[in-house]
């Protein structure tokens, strides 16, 4: 894919919604197209986080190694979403395993490239961080909701007259 085409298709990803041309070009210079086959891992817990992904199609499940409980699947991420921010935060290691439930098409963004651009171009850096914070905030909210276990009965309420 030519850089121009890549810029255009990046533009369509919801994460980059309404990003101006110039910033998008800067990002394009760090981006590439990738494909993962169903049943393969995008990354593993403990590995250096050198990339993040903007998913275009397919679904990825995040797994925690749960010891005697096996691989615990905690969340799925799909088309239009962002996968991974460990590259942004020390110690820059992945916290989960990411497993492709289906064939996955994604834009891979090279982290060291992106970090250097962010550091030289503060405007670009701010824009990226702003977008990432929004994703983080929404992901945190969803996780809290998931923690509420809303479909379970409240503790101690069973056995009443219903």
């Amino acid at each position: 894919m030519k850089p121009q085409d890549l810029t255009e298709s990046l533009h369509e990803h919801p994460f980059l919604n309404n990003m101006n041309e110039e910033l998008l070009k800067t990002l394009t210079s760090c981006a590439s197209n990738v494909v993962f086959n169903e049943g393969t891992y995008l990354f593993h817990e403990g590995e250096d986080a050198k990339t993040f992904y903007l998913l275009r199609s397919g679904r990825v499940v995040l797994e925690v190694r749960g010891g005697e409980r096996g691989q615990i699947r905690i969340q799925t991420v799909g088309a239009g979403e962002v996968l991974g921010w460990s590259w942004l935060i020390s110690p820059y290691k992945w916290h989960f395993d990411a497993f492709a439930l289906e064939q996955v098409h994604a834009f891979a963004i090279d982290a060291s490239c992106l970090v250097s651009k962010c550091e030289t171009d503060c405007h670009f850096g701010y824009e990226m961080l702003r977008r990432f914070s929004e994703v983080l905030e929404r992901r945190l909210e969803a996780t809290r909701l998931q923690l509420l276990d809303v479909y379970g009965s409240a503790v101690g309420e069973r056995g009443e007259n219903y």
Partner: peptide, 23 residues
Amino acid sequence: ITVDRGDSSWKGHIGVVTGLFSY
């Protein structure tokens, strides 16, 4: 369909309903 807690046989979504609107 999404579930709060998946298992290894579950191929669907894991997460809350509000997360599904983006698809």
